[in-house]
């Protein structure tokens, strides 16, 4: 197990390296110059040259490249954000917890809702409950997240009812003076809408898988045996069927982490959530190269970690699987 994880982590390094390389040259091939962001019409060529120099853009590309790699892999330094004028590392460290918070909560919602609906649907197979659940989950699965966000804001954040705040992470005015309990509550109120918007699509997908798996399991002999023993239907379902059906679902958990992370790109813009997704969009729009490269590296890491987690979870959950 340990050697498997280590091996996978070792493989991850060249992959990340490749990702960084592709990205590095991709953005340098693109037209437009980040220095132009700062240049005023009254500015001299000398000043512009100074700006270019301070960004390291006056060097030939291959030197910029080796220098960048050295900084990232040896000094763990991602450089200075062009637009925010602060170390990229600090900015990202500030944003990452917010996105992780949001994604983890969304993941929780996704797992809970997805599995519950899946079980319900399978247990009541071919009834109207099943039908509604299936159509409903397909409907949400097919819905663009920005649209869902709009609808939620429309209904719950001031359009029809005003139950939840429409944007932000905390109440900016009163947060600092709140007691600990109030702070927690304030955060819950603010995270609720974005998290549910982010999680609901995945939940819909998961419930579809869960239902399918469960139906498959129910057909197996040992379920028939369990029924024959005279166990109640609920006992059969939860003690025997669900336990087995959930194994393949567990893989999904690892795989949906990167999906949630990229989903945050849109959700964070709509709900003004100060996380990675917004940094990513801004960096792309404003040509903030160092920021952009670092964000890509992190998103890439999340993807790789996601699939690693999926494999590990699978191995843990299913003793038949041997990692090699």
């Amino acid at each position: 197990m340990l050697s498997f994880i280590l091996r996978r982590l070792l493989i991850a390094i060249p992959i990340l390296f490749g990702l960084l390389t592709v990205n590095f040259f991709l953005i340098r091939l693109a037209p437009g110059d980040p220095a132009d962001l700062y240049i005023d019409k009254d500015m001299d060529a000398e000043v512009k040259a100074n700006i270019m120099k301070s960004m390291g853009l006056d060097q030939p590309v291959h030197i910029q490249y080796t220098r960048y790699l050295k900084n990232v892999f040896i000094d763990f330094d991602f450089g200075l954000s062009y637009t925010k004028k602060a170390p990229v590392k600090d900015l990202i460290l500030e944003a990452v917890p917010n996105t992780i918070q949001l994604s983890l909560l969304a993941l929780g919602i996704q797992i809970f809702l997805g599995i519950m609906i899946g079980i319900f649907s399978a247990a009541k197979q071919s009834t109207w409950i099943d039908g509604t659940a299936r159509v409903g989950s397909l409907f949400f699965y097919s819905m663009p997240s920005f649209y869902l966000a709009l609808v939620f804001i429309f209904i719950f954040a001031g359009g029809v009812f005003y139950i939840f705040p429409s944007s932000g992470m905390v109440n900016p005015v009163t947060y600092e003076s709140m007691s600990f309990g109030e702070k927690i509550w304030d955060r819950i109120v603010h995270i609720f809408l974005p998290a549910i918007t982010l999680g609901i699509g995945g939940a819909a997908g998961m419930s579809r898988y869960m239902r399918g798996e469960l139906l498959e399991v129910i057909r197996q002999d040992y379920i028939r045996t369990a029924r024959a023993k005279g166990l109640t239907e609920t006992a059969v379902l939860f003690k025997h069927a669900v336990k087995n059906a959930i194994i393949p679902i567990i893989t999904l958990i690892g795989l949906s982490l990167p999906v949630l992370f990229s989903g945050s790109v849109i959700i964070e813009s709509v709900f003004a959530w100060p996380g990675m997704g917004r940094l990513a969009v801004e960096a792309a729009f404003q040509r903030d190269y160092p920021m952009f490269l670092a964000i890509n590296l992190i998103f890439g890491t999340v993807v790789i970690m996601g699939s690693l987690i999926a494999d590990i979870l699978y191995a843990v959950a299913d003793p038949k699987v041997r990692l090699s």
Binding site: I11, I15, L16, G18, L19, V22, L26, I27, A30, P31, G32, P258, F261, S262, V265, A280, V281, A284, F285, R287, F292, I295, N296, F299, G300, V302, V303, I304
Partner: peptide, 21 residues
Amino acid sequence: VDIMLAFPTLILIITVIALWQ
């Protein structure tokens, strides 16, 4: 393929379109 899969697709597409205008 592994490298390509490690790319966050949405962000990569945003970049390509945003950068090339």
